[in-house]
């Protein structure tokens, strides 16, 4: 495109970044301010910093447990949905399955359900139907991983389909001709080529699972509670502990931020991948 001096762009982006970052900055301000000072004339500049909320959050073993659950559930769910989604997309792309467009659309509709009303049936299914003797899926990590599939699997399929479609079919055909098994074709030919797309899917499904609140709040009690449900403990009739909530939020940002910056490069690459092929 046109060669111009880059500085207007930099200026523009500094401005946009300011707008993007301001609420996050404000989250930080909340986390280091006593609540009664939040209820006074606000000031953009931080007056003084009080780390008490952070020390409390760090010193709280329950929250560490929640953090662990969040990490395991969202990672497990991201891997599961991406894998299943990848298989499904491959099947939709390479096989002539009857009604596959209908199946494709039908899988997507799973994401459209308003969550509040599905909590009751999910609760009943998890406690009464999907059980082996005394073991039920309620309040287990595996249960949450499976439940999150309802909104993440459609997303994974929606995202991965163009990527898989974008891998030239000739490549697998050639492999078949060489006598490779279908399984080998998937894992050794198609999979490596899809890697950027898979990375994007992995990361976004991870983020969706990491951020989910309503389902986790209802379907976990003690063992599988996630950080977002931990937050709700601080909204009470005797006062909302904004500071603690904000401090926890800052903590929830950290793992997400690390994961995001590491794969940032892949995201755009992954998104771009399929399109470039076309």
């Amino acid at each position: 495109m046109k060669k111009k001096t880059p500085w207007p762009y930099v200026f523009f982006w500094v401005l946009i970044s300011f707008l993007t970052l301001f609420p996050i900055y404000w989250l930080f301000v909340i986390s280091v301010t006593p609540s009664f000072e939040l209820f006074s004339t606000p000031s953009v500049i931080l007056q003084h910093v009080d780390w008490q909320n952070y020390t409390e959050v760090i010193g709280n073993p329950t929250l560490r447990g929640y953090m662990m659950n969040s990490l395991l559930i969202s990672s497990g769910n991201a891997i599961l949905t991406t894998t299943f989604g990848f298989f499904a997309c491959y099947a939709l792309s390479r096989f002539n399955l009857s009604g596959k467009e209908s199946i494709f659309f039908w899988t997507i509709t799973n994401r459209m359900a308003p969550p509040a009303v599905f909590l009751l049936p999910l609760f009943l299914l998890l406690t009464k139907v999907y059980r082996i003797e005394g073991f039920t899926l309620l309040d287990t990590r595996i249960g949450m991983i499976l439940v999150y599939c309802t909104f993440n699997l459609p997303f994974a399929i929606w995202t991965l389909r163009p990527t898989v479609d974008g891998i030239p079919k000739e490549l697998d055909e050639a492999a078949f001709v060489d006598g490779a098994s279908p399984w080998k074709v998937i894992t050794e030919v198609v999979f490596p080529l899809c890697r950027p797309g898979l990375a994007v899917t992995l990361i976004l499904t991870w983020v969706f699972a990491w951020n989910e609140y309503l389902l986790a709040a209802t379907l976990t009690n003690f063992n599988a509670r996630t950080l977002t449900t931990g937050l709700s403990e601080y909204v009470t009739t005797t006062g909302t502990a904004w500071g603690i909530m904000a401090a926890i939020s800052i903590f929830t940002l950290i793992p997400a931020l690390i994961v995001f910056s590491v794969v940032q490069r892949h995201i755009v690459a992954g998104l771009t991948f399929g399109a470039v092929k076309g």
Binding site: G166, V200, K277
Partner: peptide, 11 residues
């Protein structure tokens, strides 16, 4: 991501 539909016709 969502936008991958952009090339759904091409593949």
């Amino acid at each position: 991501m969502a936008s991958k539909m952009e090339n759904i016709d091409k593949p």
